[in-house]
Design a protein around this nucleic acid. Structure first.
Lengths: 182, 182
DNA sequence: TCATGGTGTTTAGTATTTTAGACAAGAAGG
DNA sequence: CCTTCTTGTCTAAAATACTAAACACCATGA
């Protein structure tokens, strides 16, 4: 068996958030069988596998067509975020590798005194964010304001804008853009 | 098992023109197993089915994705032809149910004295045929001729035309039209 | 008519899957 | 510390898949 039925089934089951016993109950088989299949200790009969997948539910065709490597990841630990910035302005992207992503979600961190640059930024779309630590000066168009923890922003990205940490400590922001710019 | 693994396998095997023994040899299983699977007397393990399909070769994903109903039929027994005419003028269509068919092939049979009707026919496309038994009078535009076995015709279907059996015995014709009118 | 070689099917026995239930480990709450 | 619930794993017994070999049938040809 070059095809890893066990890994496929475990992937499917956990993606749907079921325990072996719950899936077994829905499928009308024993939990032990799910365990054995997932460990590749047995090669299930087609009828058993069909019963199991009916509990998800999922067709045999879907099951064998599944691309395990492309299973969309829903949860990300801090280490999974991809760093796009620099030591002064850290931009950590959520779900960077997700294909067809419609959103850019960033965990931003500005060192004391850091800024997005001398020039104003401008691009398509809209963006918004919430300050979670420190204080940041945000300039949008002709207006500027200093935001602290709990405060937020939302503006059309084509307006020239700029972020600058005017405090003594690092400033952290969670921001979102759409359509994705990274 | 609502999914008919046996029929699928038999369909695949015969499409590839293999006997049970030949497929078994290539797959490294016994011919008896192929037989049992095709009769749905057993539900094979995934590993067995994989071995069998490797002998074709075909992937499990392809196997379960196969649309049996859409398997294009290449051969038709006389009973498979669909009757479109009437007792006087029998029109038996080849591959009637084939989706996306580009051709109408008919086995026509005119009883003695029968005709396609009083009015002349006219439609898009072209048609052609060969007389295989009896004698038929074919009128195309202003011309008419009686054709016997081995003789043939070919004309643009928008020309008004009419078939009439002028002999004492039934007349049979094999005819083709494109684009399909039925 | 008898052999030969092809087909698919069947059967008895063996190997494997599947079940029922016990087991161990971790988490939550008293 | 227990008790209780969950989780996944493991094992003996029952059920089922699989093999090897025989069988029945249909051709073709001597």
């Amino acid at each position: 068996m070059s095809i890893d039925v066990g890994a496929r089934l475990r992937s499917v089951r956990t993606t749907f958030g079921m325990s072996q016993r719950e899936l077994a109950r829905r499928a009308g088989v024993t939990n032990g069988l799910i365990s054995l299949i997932e460990q590749n200790r047995v090669s299930p009969s087609v009828s058993s596998l069909k019963k199991v997948l009916d509990g998800v539910p999922m067709s045999l065709a879907e099951f064998f067509t599944l691309d395990l490597s492309a299973t969309p990841q829903a949860f990300f630990s801090a280490d999974d975020l991809v760093e796009l910035g620099n030591p002064e302005v850290s931009l950590r992207l959520v779900a960077a590798q997700r294909p067809g992503r419609q959103l850019t979600l960033l965990h931003e961190r500005y060192a004391a005194g850091a800024a997005t640059g001398e020039e104003m930024l401008a691009h398509r779309g809209e963006e918004a964010g919430v300050v979670i630590r420190g204080r940041i000066e945000l300039t949008v168009g002709g207006a500027a304001r200093v935001l602290g923890p709990g405060e937020a922003y939302y503006f059309a990205s084509q307006l020239p804008h700029r972020f600058r940490n005017v405090g003594r400590e690092a400033c952290e922001i969670i921001s979102a853009c759409t359509p994705p710019t990274f």
